[in-house]
Design a protein around this nucleic acid. Sequence first.
DNA 1: CTATGTATGTTATACTATAACATGTCAAGG
DNA 2: CCTTGACATGTTATAGTATAACATACATAG
Lengths: 163, 163
Amino acid sequence: MNHDHSPAFLRHDHARCAGSVLAAADAVIAERGLRFTPVRRRVLEILAEEHRAMGAYDVLERLSAEGFGNQPPVAYRALEFLEAQGFAHRIRRLNAFTACMHPGESHAAAFLICGTCNAVAEAPAAEVAAALDRAAGNLGFTVERSTIEALGTCPACQTGGAA
Amino acid sequence: MNHDHSPAFLRHDHARCAGSVLAAADAVIAERGLRFTPVRRRVLEILAEEHRAMGAYDVLERLSAEGFGNQPPVAYRALEFLEAQGFAHRIRRLNAFTACMHPGESHAAAFLICGTCNAVAEAPAAEVAAALDRAAGNLGFTVERSTIEALGTCPACQTGGAA
DNA sequence: CTATGTATGTTATACTATAACATGTCAAGG
DNA sequence: CCTTGACATGTTATAGTATAACATACATAG
């Protein structure tokens, strides 16, 4: 499970975006009176720095190398926490996790997975979620959380041909 | 992995809907010149009869009891075939599979998973898929296949209270 | 300081999925 | 007929993903 690929569809300043994600997380967590422990913070840093979908075991490897526990629950628990707080997303198609690039916002995200280069991008999906709510509502179903993922081809892999 | 629950949100005649699914599959497969072998057909029958999300190992258990192979690839291969042909869907949130209830149709399906009774229903999702295409298109991404799943509460579990 | 709740570390195991190879089956062409 | 080639199934083995259960540590309120 190593989804290596270009970091996102568009080039950008990682240090900056990662930093802002961490800052936002700090703020939200303080506001909610939760504990942003070393493992949890470090996991979010790792996800944000790498800026790609990482398997729990990829994350665990990093943690382990840095002196944290080296057993699966260490990674899974931190990832669960981050997901519950909206700082990370789980990408089910890949059995992987990724830092949320705009935490605190409305929060309906769709994930676009390039089948060629494996890049994963988070797309704003308010309208998609709204359509899903309607489709569900027609059957009397109330949506709590949704998973919206697309497999396809990213701009770079379309124009440049195969990567 | 046993997703037991009421078969769908609405009562209906299983034998009939399962039968029609099989009939449709027969037709489509003949048309495409493919082979609807005993395992493949039986797996679709099982999914259609049970009319619920089943793990690959649940299906395998049934196959095995009926004299087919008893190793995972037997089930996974049949399930892959059915999914590729649009006769079954994979529900990633549940690591499970379900028969497609209207094969041959346009085919954008959303899956509604009741967190209370574990029922799974397939909702028409043409509009959801269209919205996803647009959201992806805005980033220059071309969608090939999409996964749309919602976790929430089904009508029965809303009105009746907790199951 | 101690009791309580929560987080982490660890052991063990369950569950999900696929690679690789052997065997069997079927249909088309010789 | 029978052989060849393509495809399907059976089987062995193993890889990859995830969680239950318990032990230990750590922070904070009282």
